[in-house]
Amino acid sequence: MSTFILLLITGLGLGALYFLVASGLSLIYGLMGVLNFAHGSFLTLSAFAGWEVGRRIGLDTLTGFLVAILVGAIVAALTEFLLIRPLYERHIEQVLVTVGLSLATVALFEGIWGPDPINIQRMPWLIETTTIAGAPVPNSVFIAIGAAVLVLIGLLVFLRKTRYGLIIRAGVENRSMVTALGIDVRRAFTLVFTIGGIAAGIGGVLASNYFGYVSPLMGGSLLIFAFIVTVIGGLGSLAGAAVASILVAVLQQFTNYYWGYGDLIVVLLLAVVLLVRPQGLLGRKAA
């Protein structure tokens, strides 16, 4: 029973990381039709930034965390402004540019920090465990789940209650109509990229604490599952991304423990979802 609880809660923690990556991907795709391959690099860079700050000025402040978020936001905004915007409306080229960016940045990170994972120092209470129903769960898992829930609530409030949220939602629905009404959608583009970068930045710090290391490849490996989550949940749907993150991560955690092929099961799930419901669980438009 305690194994079951442990797998369930760590699965939720992994799902939280997937959601932090997938929420940005899903919003960006929903509004702009761009699949952002560089999203993993935002996450990796934030994780390294958080680690560098943390080991220089001490672990017990939130500075590293805030710097990581800031780095994610700035890099994402710059990417949109410098690389995506000039290729406006050319979706394949936009995807290709993010592919190039991800290849180049991963190589750069390997050049700077070396190709191997670096074990990180964590705040002691992050490694300590809290016992829930007999299962010792590391505290970092709760932090990840809490952060993902906060990001989800924050995004939902932002999208439902603010003017810019309204513009983004309208843009996902029908971009040409929003443009026709005289609203500059491009500002919303930079905004969703920045939001995605912030979520990836949070994800980067939490992922390094969850796994206990930073590595140039950590963003890329999370990104592939985030892609799968985004497609299963329905491209452009935030709630879909949340549901699919939990589904995918928990399923992966359980099959990995009992059978060892969790990643294959996830891919099979993707194939089944696409065969039965090509638009994804909560997606509206047919793909």
């Binding site: 699949l35 592939i224 799968i228 497609v231 891919v267 194939a271 696409l274 065969l275």
Partner: peptide
């Protein structure tokens, strides 16, 4: 035949997922 049930970006994702499964295997 399975991948071609969808097109565009979804197609890209499905093919990516199958290849990833191969890599895991």
């Amino acid at each position: 035949a399975i991948s071609l049930r969808v097109s565009g970006i979804s197609f890209a994702m499905v093919t990516l997922a199958f290849a990833q499964a191969g890599n895991v295997f």
